[in-house]
């Protein structure tokens, strides 16, 4: 879990995370919205054993932050910015 250093930012973007609505500051990443504003400690479950996973590298290489954004799976939450009306779903894809 992460905590914002600054509590006074404008929260002018409305998104949903797993169907729950949140107001978050403009310009932050989807990963930040999930971990810092959505109260979640993880982003997805692992493909094989379904373990909980959270971002590990924060620079776009580890692919642990894969989420479903507006219906599209496997989006890197750390490399996508929040947009008003965005629907984010923590990815739960397990072995077919």
């Amino acid at each position: 879990m992460f905590i914002p250093v600054d509590q006074f930012e404008d929260r002018n973007v409305t998104i949903t995370i797993d169907k729950q609505e949140f107001q978050v500051p403009e310009g932050i990443s989807v990963a930040a919205a999930i971990l810092g504003h959505g109260g979640h400690a993880d982003c997805r479950c692992s493909f094989v054993h379904g373990e909980k996973r959270a971002p590990f590298c924060f620079i776009g290489v580890c692919h642990e932050c894969l989420v479903e954004i507006d219906g599209k799976p496997n989006q890197q939450a750390c490399l996508v910015l929040v947009r008003d009306g965005m629907h984010i779903v923590k990815q739960q894809v397990k072995e077919g």
Partner: peptide, 24 residues
């Protein structure tokens, strides 16, 4: 190392820079 809450130090610093968040 795959547990949530485990992360790379430099990465978390980069996250602080872009998103203004610090780890708990």
């Amino acid at each position: 190392w795959t547990l949530p809450g485990v992360a790379e130090a430099g990465g978390v610093d980069a996250f602080l820079k872009s998103d203004g968040l610090v780890p708990q």
